[in-house]
């Protein structure tokens, strides 16, 4: 034991030993990727590490006041947002489930009342199906009342918005993962599709101006389109000259 070790308090020494052990573990064979490792295995390991580390972050309870700091602060922010979006979605989902359970309960009350009235009128059920159909009627009746109420409409919309928010947060986290593996993301595809739409529009405009082409076996539709466009142009010019 060195002089420095002797003078350290126990807790400090314990911490230092722990760090030493961690360091040794991380330097053991297989812990650090080497050039001759299987490339697929390397990617799998990276993916697994990525997922597990962010899963841990997602599961952790983040004090809202704490600002994420450091190298992974952006990722941490995304995972926090995802965690809170999920919590909000679950909260609203529980509320709507409670509302729907209440609808079921009220439907059963109404069914009970309908059955009693039927019995009093001397009209017993001949088949189970009759009871079932009556239950459906009662259910729809109660549900229609609830579904039209302002409170339910607000709650359903809030749940819908919460599910959109949750989905958006999931996408953000996934996009980061896809970029990590150099895979195309939805955002990149959106850019391409936006440009594609603009190109389609320009192409359609240009086709209207093209001179008529002789139809061939393999461009009948194009020829039809050209004819249709020409006819449209003629009609437009006729209208203009009137």
């Amino acid at each position: 034991m060195t002089e420095a070790q002797e003078k350290s308090p126990d807790w400090a020494q314990a911490w230092i030993d722990e760090q030493r052990e961690r360091l040794e573990n991380s330097l053991r064979e297989g812990s650090v990727p080497s050039g001759d490792r299987d490339l697929g295995a390397l990617f799998s390991r990276l993916g697994a590490d990525w997922l597990s580390s962010y899963e841990l972050l997602a599961r952790a309870s983040f004090p809202k006041s704490t600002v994420p700091l450091g190298w992974a602060r952006e990722q941490e922010r995304e995972w926090r947002d995802l965690a809170s979006a999920q919590a909000e979605y679950r909260r609203l989902e529980a509320q709507i489930v409670a509302k729907l359970l209440a609808v079921h309960a009220r439907a059963l009350d109404r069914l009970q009342q309908a059955v009693r009235e039927r019995t009093e009128q001397g009209r017993p059920f001949e088949e189970f199906r009759e009871l079932y159909d009556l239950w459906i009627e009662c259910g729809e009746e109660i549900y229609a009342e609830v579904a039209r109420s302002e409170e339910y409409c607000r709650l359903q919309a809030a749940l819908g918005n919460a599910s959109i928010e949750l989905r958006a947060r999931q996408q953000k986290v996934l996009e980061r993962g896809l970029k990590y593996f150099d895979l195309p993301t939805r955002s990149e595809l959106n850019s391409v599709h936006r440009e594609l739409r603009a190109l389609r529009e320009r192409l359609a405009e240009l086709e209207v101006r093209l001179p008529r082409q002789a139809p061939s076996a393999n461009n009948t539709t194009r020829a039809t389109r050209a004819r249709a466009s020409q006819q449209a142009s003629k009609r437009t010019s006729k209208r203009a000259s009137k």
Binding site: A147, R148, C153, R154, Q156, A157, A158, G160, N161, I164, E165, R167, A168, Q171, R186, N190
Partner: peptide, 20 residues
């Protein structure tokens, strides 16, 4: 029109921005 009533509170912009 119940469909309209239900859709009133939905953030359509967020919906389309998110799911395309």
């Amino acid at each position: 029109n119940l469909l309209t009533k239900w859709s009133d509170g939905i953030d359509i912009d967020a919906l389309v921005d998110t799911i395309g």
